[in-house]
């Protein structure tokens, strides 16, 4: 899998796609998978990030709940959590060429 965080990334969150419908989800502090990036648990530093990823992978029967679990880099802004890469911004919002589709059209707080 491609690397979704820069080396030495300060903040990271864990994402996946829901198995049944493919929708993008984020691991929360309550160990649930939320459709909103704003609900994501954010880990600071390498060790915390690895622990977060392990939590996503091991504890919540992810194999029938979600697939393709990985860490990605985020920024904490005044408006909330923001993905760092173009790819992850698109994943959490929807296609930039169809702003009427995807999370950007369905839930609040997408463009923090």
């Amino acid at each position: 899998m491609a690397q979704h965080s820069r080396k030495g990334a300060q903040f990271q969150a864990v994402t996946a796609n829901r198995l049944a419908d493919g929708i993008v989800v984020y691991l929360t502090a309550a160990n649930e998978w939320s459709v909103s990036l704003q609900d994501a648990d954010v880990a600071e530093g390498k060790e915390a990030a690895e622990a977060l990823l392990a939590r996503g992978q091991k504890f919540y029967v992810p194999d029938i709940l979600v697939v393709d679990i990985y860490l990605f880099e985020v920024e904490k802004t005044d408006g909330g959590i923001r993905a760092s890469s173009v790819r992850e911004i698109i994943r959490q919002a929807g296609p930039t060429v169809r702003t009427d589709l995807g999370k950007q059209a369905e839930i609040d707080g997408v463009h923090a």
Binding site: N17, L19, A20, D21, G22, I23, V24, V61, D63, I64, V67, D68, R87, I90, R91, G94, P95, G102
Partner: peptide, 27 residues
């Protein structure tokens, strides 16, 4: 696959042979 009998690694080539990809926002 949905019941968990098939793991993702084993299911992937099967779904691919039927044109089902996992993309950014969904399948």
């Amino acid at each position: 696959r949905l019941s968990g009998e098939l793991a993702e690694d084993d299911f992937k080539p099967l779904r691919l042979m039927n044109g089902v990809y996992l993309q950014l926002h969904s399948y």
